[in-house]
């Protein structure tokens, strides 16, 4: 393998590595914010347990619901007594009629603005019999963070596509032009006229596949060793190889007169 091709493979390998680190970093950070949302339960209170059961039936199949726990009033009283050491006020507390509570835990990766609006609308239908408590502010902060992170990720993704194409085309054209003298001599000395085009195609296969295979090997090794919890979508690898293929095609179009 020629030095130029080897150099291009190394450069593209490192760009891909950086690109994959961007996906991993994004997934890792997004996962963190989503877990924050998952840890925010919604408490729904009602004096009628039946109403809560109806609400539960209506929403438990929603994909953004992780689980729903209905807590009986007696359990609430017991929890309050044990948590706040109210043994002396036991009888007083038992004399009060406490509401039944329903704790809704969410799947952070799905519970977004649209889903929250849908849930609020459902709960509104049962008001004033049902009231709910949710840390909207914290949820909104996490949503904003996810939104900002996603925007930054897409921007980074776009930059990587442009950067990859720019570097891949630039290097390809540079090394092909550097070899132009050799090919002129090759052709004038009687060498096969199709050889340069064939060689370009073979080199394109090396440049497209080797860096990606190395990246995949690293990724799966780390996954196998359980050092990485997040997964990279297969489509991402598809986009990566497509970018390199398109770069090779653009470079070939630029060099068409030389490759003939």
């Amino acid at each position: 393998m020629k030095k130029g091709i080897f150099f291009q493979i190394i450069v593209i390998f490192f760009i891909l590595l950086g690109w994959n680190l961007l996906h991993i970093g994004y997934d890792f950070q997004k996962d963190l914010f989503e877990r924050n949302i998952s840890s925010l339960p919604m408490m729904v209170l009602s004096m009628q347990e039946n109403t809560l059961e109806q609400v539960k039936i209506r929403i438990e199949k929603k994909d953004y619901i992780e689980d729903i726990i209905i807590i009986q009033d007696s359990v609430i009283a017991q929890t309050l007594i044990s948590n706040y050491d109210l043994v002396e006020g036991n009888e007083i507390l038992r004399s009060y009629i406490l509401p039944t509570a329903m704790q809704i835990n969410f799947r952070g990766e799905i519970f977004q603005i649209e889903q929250k609006q849908e849930l609020d609308k459902i709960l509104l239908e049962y008001s004033p019999g049902v009231i709910h408590y949710f840390d909207d502010q914290r949820w909104q902060i996490d949503q904003n963070k996810i939104s900002l992170l996603t925007k930054a990720y897409y921007a980074g993704f776009g930059i990587f596509i442009i950067f990859m194409m720019f570097i891949a085309i630039l290097l390809r054209v540079h090394f092909e032009m550097k070899n132009d003298h050799f090919w002129k001599i090759f052709h004038s000395s009687g060498g096969n006229y199709r050889k340069r085009g064939t060689q370009y195609f073979i080199n394109s296969i090396y440049i497209c596949l080797i860096p990606l295979i190395l990246n995949l090997a690293i990724y799966y090794t780390i996954r196998y060793m359980q050092l990485l919890s997040v997964k990279i979508d297969y489509k991402i690898f598809g986009i990566e190889i497509l970018t390199i293929i398109i770069s090779s095609v653009f470079a070939a179009i630029t060099l068409r007169e030389h490759l003939k």
């Binding site: 003298h181 050799f182 002129k184 001599i185 004038s188 000395s189 009687g190």
Partner: peptide
């Protein structure tokens, strides 16, 4: 194969 006046060598 044409051998021209100019040399075609590396």
């Amino acid at each position: 194969i044409l051998l021209e006046n100019t040399s075609h060598l590396l």
